[in-house]
Each structure stands twice: as C-alpha cells, then as structure tokens.
Simulated assay, not measured.
Amino acid sequence: MKAYLFPGQGSQFVGMGKDLYKNSHLAKKLFQLSNEVLGFKITSIMFEGSIDTLKNTKYTQLSIYIYSVIKAKISKNFKPDMVAGHSLGELSALAAINVFSFEDGLKLVNERASIMQNICELTSGGMAVVFGLKDSVIEYVCKKDHGIIVPSNYNSPEQLVISGEIQALRRVCSYLKKIGAKKILTLPVHGAFHSPIMEPAQKKFQKIVNKIDFKDSKYPIYQNVTALPVKKSNEIKNNIVKQLTAPVKWKQSIKNMMDHGAILFTEIGPGNILQGLIKKISRNFA
C-alpha cells in the first residue's frame, strides 16, 4: 500500500516552487490563485525572497503548504491508500485529498500562522531536539520541572522534541545532558509549538476552522494527535485544532501505517526530512 507524507516547518528553501511554476500550467494557475487569495505576492517570497523572510512563521507555513499541495495536485502518480502530515503538513495532506479546497486551506494556514506568530511575539518560548534518551525519561523530567515544558514531537525512536518556556527549556536541557542525552539541539524557532503556551491560539483557530467546509475523506489520514486513521470530517476538524497544543505523534503514526499495510512511503513537499525519519522508525519496528 502507498502512503504519502507531507512535511511541516523546516523544509523550506529560497526558490521553492519556481520550477513547478515554469513547467506546469496548473501549478502556475494555483500559484497565481495563492497571490489573489492572500492579497500579496507569496510567490515573490518563495521564488526570490531572502531566507530570513522565508523563516518567518507566517511565510514559512504558507510556502510549504502551497508547494506541497501543488506538487500533489500536478502529480499523475498521486494515488494514496493513506496519508499523514507532520504538524503543518497535516493541512497540506487534507487539501491534497480534497477534504477542503486549496483556497480554504490557504485561509486556514494563513490564519493559523498569523495567530501562532502573534503568540510567539507575546511569550518567551522555544523548542529543542533531544537525542539518545528514552521517551519515558524525557517525559518524567519535563513533568517534574515547575515551569511549562512538555514533549512536543515524537519524531523517531532516537529523537524527541520538547517545547515550552525558555527558562524551563534551559533547565530541562541542562539536566538531560547530565543524565546521558547524546545530543541536544535548540531549534531555530521563536515559539513553543505543540505546548500549553499555544492555548490562546487554539481558541482563535477553532473559530476559523468552524467557518470552513470540511468533507469526509476518501482515504484514511493518520492525524498527529491520535496517530490513528480518521475519515470523518468532524473528527478531522477537532484533531487539527487540538494539534496546536498536543504533541505530534509521528513515529506512532508511521508505525500504525506500517501495521496497516503501508510499504511505500512518498514525501510530497520541499526536502526529504520525513524520509530520514522513516528510515529510523522502520529500523526500530522491523
């Protein structure tokens, strides 16, 4: 069975989509539609903007969504048996399989990114990847800290991302190094995504989601919040809202997809970050 995966933030690059724009009439049409819906030239930022501009949460999320969905829409081979998206990638996956329209997805991503960016500016948060410790150990250390700090991305058996207040993040990272973490990398983000700090964003996003027309999915989508296959529109809507404060259960999702028959995993988006994670997960569960 074929599984298609859609990446989140971190896979962007300057020039992304320019080749699609030049070589596909449908891609060009969708890029131009993106500019019209958003009211500004996102294509200029994607094709020739600076990497610093592209790193801005708002532009990053829009660019990855647009690139990923267009790539799926113009592909003659996009015939999934199941799909999944990492964080933001979940919205790309839903648009690709027509749970909502490309335009509605643009509005969702635009509002989601703006809301999250606003929370980042009002709070002091960060994220870090921890390598070489068991999930249970990291979970316990986070729980024992008196600040807001939680596991946020279960990416692979070798790495778990934690997210929270800057001071709590520093304390927990320092302690995890002392007890045997092989490596800890602070992520280049200015917010504590997938943590309780995002609760105000979640409430605002709920109102926006309620205005969008969602359809039941033809294909199971393994959502981040539960790692389980979902097809019903109401459940899908609830899960993408919960995702803002809940951890991304990526390795659990991939494991469940494998258990349900997925053999070929194809990444649809810029870069190949998810392919690297798949190799690590498959080795662990083989």
Rank of each mutant, 00 (worst) to 15 (best):
F6I: 03
G10P: 07
G10R: 06
Y21M: 11
N23R: 14
S24K: 04
L33D: 06
S34I: 02
L38W: 10
G39N: 06
F40L: 01
T43H: 02
T43P: 03
S44V: 01
S44I: 00
E48S: 14
G49I: 11
T53R: 12
T60V: 04
T60K: 04
L62S: 04
Y65R: 08
Y65N: 11
I70L: 12
K73N: 06
K79A: 07
L88W: 04
G89R: 03
A95L: 08
A96E: 08
F102Q: 10
E111A: 14
E111I: 07
R112V: 10
I115M: 11
Q117A: 11
N118H: 14
C120F: 05
V130Q: 09
F131V: 09
G132I: 11
D135P: 00
I138G: 00
E139H: 00
Y140C: 00
I148P: 00
Y154A: 00
Y154C: 00
Y154G: 00
Q159Y: 00
I162R: 02
E165N: 08
A168Y: 02
V172T: 10
K177R: 15
L185P: 03
L185E: 13
L187P: 12
L187V: 10
P188C: 07
A192Q: 05
A192M: 05
F193A: 10
H194I: 03
K203S: 13
N210R: 11
D213K: 15
V225I: 13
V225L: 08
T226A: 04
A227F: 05
P229N: 07
V230N: 14
K231F: 09
N234D: 15
E235I: 12
E235K: 14
E235C: 02
I240F: 06
W250V: 02
Q252G: 00
M257L: 05
H260P: 00
I263A: 09
L264A: 07
F265P: 05
I268A: 04
L274V: 14
K279M: 07
K280E: 13
K280G: 04
S282E: 09
F285P: 01
